[in-house]
Amino acid sequence: MSTPTIPRRSWAQRYHVKGIGWTVLMLVLLVASAQMTGVNVGMFFSNLGQFTNLLVRMSNPAWDYTTVIIQPLLETIQMAILGTTIGAAFAIPFAVLSASNLIHNRWLRGLTRLFLDLVRTLPDLLLAAIFVAIFGIGSTAGVVTLAIFSFGMVSKLFYEVIETIDMGPLEALESVGATKITIIWYAVLPQILNQFISYFLYTLEINVRASTVLGYLGAGGIGVFLQRSLNEFNYNQTAVIILATLVVVLVIDGVSNHLRRVLL
């Protein structure tokens, strides 16, 4: 039996020089950035006691507080739904204009993407601070913040979905003599709708969590109560708020998982 001749690997291939090299480089960068930014890992461990202390003080949730926070929690969910829906609705035309397989005009596409990058650069906390200043304390500021935040995020997710579609049906519709809008409606939308819904729910989940933080700045919802309980050192109330938010996030996660399974 003759052994087949196997092509020889180079020295670098045999000893995985590339993989090892990149790993070492990443480690060096990691250590260097820790040192330059002055992160003290030792301090994290020596002060861990305070963290446990906090946990202990939270360990006895004030359950009767639940009745107080249900209303603001609902408001948080409503803010998230409103903000996500408005943001996603505006995202659709921008996603279409950013997709390289639909828009062949490089300038138009580039300009739209630049605008979207700009929107994504603005942190949600900054947006909340601005809109609280404009609309005053309350959920309007929260909804507008969430809408803009979702718009930036969703439009990027959406146009990446659009760029993966099968172009065959588009060609067919074009050969039929359809207008550009009809082509998008008939050949693009059915292909992306399910993933759109999936990403919409994912954004909604993120927004529920984000809006708890936004409440801190006075943008309405459960965050206001979170801040109040922390300021009053009522950690037993804080625990209830965190647990209630967890339940909401779990429910949304469950619903979106279920919908994704049914739809995809």
Binding site: D166, G168, P169, A172, L173, V176, G177, A178, P190, Q191
Partner: peptide
């Protein structure tokens, strides 16, 4: 025009696919 890959809209009904030939 008829294509090698059929180029139907897979997730839509046959009826909608056929009607899409009439959109112009």
């Amino acid at each position: 025009m008829i294509f090698q890959g059929f180029n139907l809209i897979n997730r839509s009904s046959v009826e909608k696919n056929v009607l899409s030939g009439r959109v112009s």
